[in-house]
């Protein structure tokens, strides 16, 4: 177990380092001169020179890279070249909005998927199962960028219940949470259904019936608990996916989170801020994935420790 945790930790560190390297290289793949790209053609040479020095692009690449790495280890993600603000602070300011959105999407997904998945799993080959499958496929089929505007159309414009966009009271979060949570609820429903069906076929269920337990007890005490292990793992892993899915949802609903920050940074060619945001999202994702992996091994000690 200790050995596994150590290995998991090392792999995470390696991934963090690799992502950092990748993000540092991004500035190199810009076709042409990044400084000219940012300032536009025909910018005064003095400005170009100044920005180049500010971004550290006048030094050789390996020096820039080592400087950035050093900065990262000291919690310094450079400054936005447009606003001049500290990138880390900007990102931390935006983070709560994204976390809130991801959290409520998760709640929405749980509310939809648990009843559907459990019913579908227990009543195999019935209309319930078909219904669960159908709804979960619908959730997968309608992507965020189509569902979001459709929800706005029906529930903000035709029947004005919820606000069109922005962040404010609880009513503001309903449509974004549904948009972002729809895909997740589809995956969860499918997973819960499959997991319960798998467990029901195992011999211990027969044994529990043979002991004289009622159907309710068998399902509540045995089947349900065991079938939740993969479901919880999926929920954890998908929480990280929600953070990235938020990029589109936040754009649709003008939700002031980290995803919209990224798109804004890209649109205004604020490359340092874009790099910092990509780093921040990836780091969160790696962190969440690692935590989920560890929890999984604690929940189910039988799993094989990393190949």
């Amino acid at each position: 177990m200790k050995k596994y945790l150590l290995k998991r930790f090392l792999i995470s560190i390696f991934s963090l380092w690799a992502i950092f390297t990748f993000v540092s290289l991004l500035i190199r793949i810009i076709p042409g001169d990044p400084v000219i790209m940012m300032l536009g053609e025909g910018a005064p040479p003095a400005n170009v020179k100044k920005l180049r020095r500010e971004l550290g692009l006048d030094k050789p690449f390996y020096i820039q890279y080592l400087n950035d790495l050093n900065g990262l280890l000291h919690g310094n993600l450079k400054k936005s070249w447009i606003t001049g603000k500290d990138n880390l602070r900007t990102i931390l300011n935006r983070y709560p909005a994204t976390i809130t959105l991801a959290f409520f999407s998760m709640i929405f997904a749980i509310l939809i998927s648990f009843p559907l998945g459990i019913l579908g799993g227990l009543k195999k080959d019935t209309l319930w199962e078909k219904g669960a499958t159908f709804i979960s496929v619908m959730g997968i089929s309608i992507p965020h960028f189509a569902l979001g505007p459709l929800l706005i159309l029906f529930f903000s414009i035709l029947i004005p219940i919820f606000p069109v966009s922005g962040m404010g009271g609880f009513s503001h979060i309903v449509l974004p949470a549904i948009t972002l949570g729809s895909g997740l609820s589809a995956y969860l429903t499918k997973m819960i259904k499959k997991s319960i069906q798998n467990e029901l076929e195992k011999p211990y269920v027969l044994c529990a019936y043979a002991k004289g337990l009622s159907k309710f007890e068998v399902i509540k005490n045995h089947v349900f608990k065991n079938s939740m292990i993969p479901v919880i793992t999926l929920m954890g892993l998908q929480f990280g996916v929600l953070l990235s899915g938020a990029i589109i949802t936040e754009t649709i609903f003008s939700w002031p989170g980290i995803g919209r920050l990224l798109i804004r940074a890209i649109e205004s060619r604020d490359y340092p801020l874009a790099q910092a945001t990509i780093l921040a999202i990836s780091f969160t994702y790696i962190f969440v994935t690692a935590v989920v992996d560890v929890i999984y091994t604690i929940l189910d000690p039988r799993i094989k420790f990393y190949e």
Partner: peptide, 14 residues
Amino acid sequence: AMPGILLAIAIVSF
């Protein structure tokens, strides 16, 4: 280790 389409967004945006 990069979630969803973030990798693609990163590449295309630069």
